Amino acid sequence: MLWWVLGGAALLVVAVVVTGVVLFVVAAGKSDRVWGVDDVAVGECVTVSGEDEPVVRKVSCDSTDFHFAVALKADPGVCAAKNYSRLWFGEGDSSDSFGKWARDGLCLAHVYQQGRCYHLPSSKETNALADVREIDCSSPPATGAGENYEVESKVSGMPECSEEQAEYFTEKPTPTGYCLRLLE
């Protein structure tokens, strides 16, 4: 009888361990990390961070923190013509924003919040997408390596900005327009 009890307890321990391993593997497979264009869909949202190499992660599109919306999956050159930032995956030599050349890329729309301020670095920087960030409107950083803007309005569609404002509009994934005031 003791052997039956010990055998049952051993089977229960094995079942718990196997279940834990399976749950861990399933959770690891659902990582929010984006390694290439197939890891994210048009309309999903991402953040970009990292010093030398971009670290791209999926985020909720409902987030009020700065993020990007995936507007298109495209070949090089398409994004600039449509007012999107470009993020390419791959290795080689090029002059894109990460110093890499790739055939597969994402066109990203900036997602700002009305009334907030943002630093937009010079596109010549090595990892410029990771350096786009929200800033304190009352004490913006020096503008030597980019520009600082306050989002004065956000609309669903083409914005109607004054002459003193900069306009930022993206048609995809949903038409969104912003009127920005340059902070000096």
Rank of each mutant, 00 (worst) to 15 (best):
residue 156 S to R: 14
residue 133 R to Q: 10
residue 57 R to L: 01
residue 1 M to H: 03
residue 13 V to D: 02
residue 56 V to C: 02
residue 37 V to Q: 02
residue 96 D to C: 09
residue 51 E to C: 01
residue 12 L to Q: 03
residue 76 P to W: 05
residue 57 R to D: 01
residue 91 E to V: 14
residue 12 L to H: 03
residue 58 K to D: 08
residue 7 G to A: 13
residue 102 A to E: 10
residue 43 G to D: 09
residue 85 S to H: 04
residue 22 V to Q: 03
residue 89 F to V: 11
residue 116 R to V: 03
residue 110 H to K: 10
residue 7 G to I: 12
residue 175 P to Y: 09
residue 4 W to T: 04
residue 2 L to Y: 04
residue 123 S to L: 10
residue 158 M to V: 13
residue 34 V to Y: 08
residue 2 L to A: 08
residue 78 V to P: 09
residue 10 A to Y: 05
residue 164 E to V: 02
residue 127 N to K: 15
residue 117 C to S: 15
residue 161 C to F: 05
residue 108 L to R: 10
residue 98 F to P: 01
residue 88 W to H: 00
residue 92 G to R: 14
residue 159 P to K: 09
residue 83 N to I: 00
residue 46 V to G: 08
residue 57 R to Q: 15
residue 122 S to Q: 04
residue 23 L to C: 11
residue 180 L to M: 09
residue 34 V to E: 01
residue 12 L to K: 07
residue 115 G to E: 06
residue 171 E to K: 15
residue 3 W to T: 00
residue 167 E to I: 06
residue 123 S to H: 09
residue 85 S to C: 11
residue 52 D to Q: 11
residue 77 G to W: 06
residue 62 D to R: 15
residue 128 A to P: 15
residue 59 V to H: 04
residue 3 W to L: 02
residue 3 W to E: 11
residue 134 E to R: 15
residue 10 A to Q: 06
residue 85 S to T: 05
residue 124 K to R: 12
residue 162 S to T: 07
residue 181 R to K: 14
residue 168 Y to S: 05
residue 183 L to R: 04
residue 62 D to A: 15
residue 129 L to E: 01
residue 99 G to C: 03
residue 107 C to W: 09
residue 127 N to L: 09
residue 46 V to P: 00
residue 49 S to P: 00
residue 159 P to V: 12
residue 113 Q to P: 01
residue 132 V to S: 05
residue 66 F to K: 02
residue 138 S to Y: 04
residue 113 Q to R: 12
residue 166 A to Y: 03
